[in-house]
Design a protein around this nucleic acid. Structure first.
Lengths: 189, 189
DNA sequence: CGGCGGTGTTTAATATATTGGACATTGCAC
DNA sequence: GTGCAATGTCCAATATATTAAACACCGCCG
């Protein structure tokens, strides 16, 4: 074990932007438990550690296996000029995330009212997520990275990373986005 | 987790041919602890599970990661005709384990008196092990597989599997064998 | 047959993890 | 500033894991 359980848990929890109490609630344990574990003052039982990780969610195998140093995750942001136009018929489309490894996602379209967002809670689900701002401005937060995207700018990230969209402006904002329903499906191109 | 902690521990322990008490002694815990864990009547603490696995030895990551069904481990035994003669100068050598994946070991020579063996305890160490019987007969046990090898027959297995050599006959036996000092070294051929 | 050394299991006592609730601190709204 | 809702920490009570020692069983040898 190259890393303490305490350190690992804290890393996992913080990467998913959860407080001790929040994670505790999801996991069905008390915040004390998580606090003590992260201070390395107890050695949790497998059952309770499993409960905690279920709240993330993450398997025990992942927990003990995951690498300490994040592999310098490539920026999820793409500049305008990086987006080749592959437009379709009725709707104009852009291929975003050009060059991303193992990509197999295509886009949809969304419109945000002024001030709207995807909820206080960070989203996190299977698959990958891609998109681009068409009109207005959208603040996108992915894990610890955050940026206000203007028209023509886009994003590409793994949907399991906690993320949130917020329209902080006074104007309506429009983005094209997509998440893959079956992450295991073969790329269609 | 595709498998219970209890089941995994029992599999690991039995694969290494250890009794509950034997493993307990190596791990510095009591046999009761291991018994209760294997009956799934307790959920061990990380610390104690780690202690137990240190007695194998095996890391927590391995423990939670290792695959349930053994991948039909190829037979460690090789018939005489499978051994091409690549003889050297003073000593005659044979290349054993021809066709084994990721092999990078060469041989040494050993002689066993009548009734001699490598000790009551099963051996287990890093690297790979290869050999062939030159004269006499040698009983080789590798994990749960056991066979008496006669002159011209050989073996090839991972040294981390528990193993033992025994000369059950009344005659001296001679084998050529080798274990790799640095398992990570590049193959020299 | 009886005894010996091995196996895995069980139980009461002890050590440890976990809880429930309090605490101190911080940041934000009013 | 006060109030409020977060945050992480700490502590006594409780639940659970771990121990130490016994138990029953088995195969073997005298």
């Amino acid at each position: 074990m190259s890393l303490e359980v305490s350190t690992r848990l804290k890393l996992v929890r913080e990467k998913h932007a959860l407080s001790q109490r929040e994670l505790a609630k999801r996991a069905g344990v008390t915040n004390s438990t998580i606090s003590l574990i992260e201070q390395n003052r107890v050695s949790p039982s497998i059952s309770s550690l499993k409960k905690v990780l279920d709240g993330v969610p993450m398997s025990l195998a992942e927990f003990f296996t995951f690498d300490i140093e994040e592999p310098a995750r490539p920026s999820p942001f793409f500049e305008r000029e990086q987006m080749p136009d592959i437009g379709g018929e009725g709707v104009q489309l852009f291929l975003v995330g050009h060059g991303v490894q193992n990509r197999h996602i295509t886009m949809l379209r969304e419109i945000y009212e002024a001030g709207a967002d995807t909820g206080a809670e960070m989203l996190s689900h299977a698959g990958q997520e891609v998109g681009m701002v068409v009109r207005g401005e959208i603040e996108l937060t992915v894990a610890e990275q955050s940026r206000v995207l203007k028209p023509g700018e886009g994003y590409y990230f793994d949907s399991t990373l906690p993320h949130r969209f917020r329209n902080l402006s006074q104007q309506e904002a429009e983005i094209v986005s997509a998440s893959l329903v079956s992450p295991n499906a073969a790329p269609s191109f």
